[in-house]
Design a protein around this nucleic acid. Structure first.
Lengths: 343, 343
DNA sequence: CATACTAGCTCAACCGCTTAACGTAAGCAA
DNA sequence: TTGCTTACGTTAAGCGGTTGAGCTAGTATG
């Protein structure tokens, strides 16, 4: 085995193959300027010596770090609650891997520190592009990135709220329609929604869509916003269920809250789905594992992550990328939903 | 506002403050060699121009990338199932952030590709240190890193299986003792364990510990290994519960499998905890949200991540770091465990 | 046969920052 | 005055690659 001693540089390869370092560079990068013989020789030597290009040198020389940046905001504890983050990373990661790109993750404890990190990346060239997630209403990141068009960016969020930046988005409004349709079809005339934080862009989109869809069908609709924590989801459920007959269906904006809500209902002796139907927005293994299993709005986050990776790479390559829609949500019917109770 | 036009380099700062670029470097890095006046001037100019050191240049010059590497193996879909990964990242991230380090994540689809990535990092200098997780028995990564002592590494795993490498470890054997003690105290005379994959180092440790602890107390113990998927956890539970009276307590190696197992039991009309006690190894919000809530072995993964970050940074700084133990596991008693049924 | 062109290679500059080595002037003691 | 420090700056080399501009020898062209 080749004992990788110290760092082996292009100069070592050059010396060992009896040519200049430029020739080595040409050979290794498949450029013209060297004969086939020399190229073979160099490649062979490089392989034997276990040469790999130093990433810093390469980055400095062609101003490309081969890094994609992703910033995690929100409370670390809450993060773990959601499968979204991990699935996204997995999807991004696998696809970036193929392009020999790395995913750089930084942790922010709010929009301000996220802005700082973004500015940092723009000034230091630490990443070749960024992916923005968890967009808020009037998000300052949009303006920042619009003002600095030299930094490739992909926003995961609704195009109506992301300025002119390239986006990958899910049609949450359509999904809201599916949910309302479905519940309405089961005879429910009232829907309660335990939503995410009000300032989140996707919450806003959903809020509006639910409002419209329920109004259209003459369904009573009421909505309370949470911080996405299961605890708060449980509290609100508790409050709603204290007055029986208030609603026959609750839609949760996350699987974690749906699970917590289900727990509350069961504890209160409320039968799901006989007395109460529950829908989880976002599907995960929990939804199918728990009893009764949870009807859920499903989307393939890993696939979206992979798609996002492909898009940001194209954007980095200078392509103009149009807003693209994810594979649409689908409703997975399980045991937590049923006909509205006939009182 | 300062319109960040193009990249601003140290040379720009030098020109603008009328000194050489070296003087600027000294000034900005707080080194001696410049007068207080000059230093102030330079700092002021740098701030005005919005200068930030180019990370590639800095990395090239002092052979420090300020990146810590973490490799995700395992099936992306399975990943999302566990909160462990995300919590670890969160813990690492917040702590690295303080030291102005970034977390670089790469996705591998097996040990071989993980080895490739590690070798890559060692040759390219892409990261200053790596954190190894999900250790397996006879893991080839140990040997690789031992042979290349120039690459700082921290292993998250039991010191008995990680050669001489620095480790941060949890005392799984002790926790196994706690579990067996607890169940034994409740009068259970038989324990079934739905474990993780056999090749995982921590599974091995737990296997051995459970075997010893149960033998010591004369408890019937049987164990089946899974791939950690909730599906497989459910299947095995199904199989075990087909013969009633086979066991009165099941311990699951992950919260996901525990939830799935609970679902199976409830569906079969088995009362938890009256007829069956369930313990989840690894606690998460699910365990408290579900009904009945799950008694669980708890550890603070976010805190461990933070500790791991501090350790790897010290290792990078050349300190010799002794194997360190995480805050010990604790058993959180909830509703899924109770006295053994008296037949 | 002189000229032009091209393939194959080397030189040297450059990416942006660090740092050892050196120069210079001021400060101080003898 | 000389000699020795010390403080403050500059120059230049180097980190490990890339790349435009030569240079040289071989081949095609008129």
């Amino acid at each position: 085995m080749s004992q990788t001693k110290a760092k082996v540089t292009i100069t070592d390869v050059a010396r060992a193959s009896g040519v200049s370092s430029s020739a080595v560079s040409y050979a290794l990068n498949g450029k013209r300027g060297v004969s086939a013989d020399t190229r073979d020789k160099v490649l062979k030597v490089a392989r034997e010596l276990g040469w790999k290009p130093n990433s810093a040198a390469k980055a400095l020389s062609n101003s490309r770090s081969r890094n994609i940046g992703l910033i995690q905001t929100r409370d670390p504890k809450l993060f773990a609650v959601e499968s979204y983050g991990m699935e996204l990373i997995a999807g991004l990661g696998t696809e970036l891997e193929k392009a020999d790109y790395s995913l750089v993750i930084r942790q922010a404890d709010g929009l301000e520190s996220e802005m700082r990190i973004l500015k940092d990346w723009m000034a230091t060239g630490g990443v070749d592009g960024v992916i923005l997630v968890n967009m808020e209403l009037g998000d300052p990141r949009i303006e920042l990135l619009e003002q600095n068009p030299q930094m490739p960016v992909l926003v995961l969020g609704d195009p109506s709220l992301t300025g002119g930046l390239p986006t990958l988005w899910s049609d949450d409004a359509a999904a809201a329609g599916i949910v309302v349709d479905y519940l309405s079809g089961l005879g429910h005339t009232s829907i309660v929604r335990v939503a995410g934080p009000e300032e989140m862009a996707h919450t806003f989109i959903r809020d509006r869509a639910f409002m419209e869809e329920t109004t259209k069908r003459g369904i009573t609709y009421s909505c309370l916003h949470t911080d996405y924590s299961p605890t708060m989801g449980a509290e609100i459920t508790e409050r709603f269920l204290t007055y029986p007959g208030l609603t026959s269906a609750i839609v949760y904006d996350s699987d974690a809250m749906a699970l917590a809500g289900l727990g509350v209902a069961v504890r209160k002796g409320i039968s799901v789905p006989r007395d109460l139907s529950i829908i989880s927005w976002d599907d995960s293994f929990m939804c199918s594992a728990v009893f009764p299993s949870l009807t859920a709005i499903h989307r393939d986050v890993v696939a979206s992550g992979a798609m996002a990776a492909k898009m940001i790479l194209r954007i980095i390559d200078g392509e103009k990328v149009e807003p693209q829609e994810e594979k649409p949500y689908s409703l997975i019917e399980r045991d937590s939903t049923g006909p509205a109770p006939t009182d």
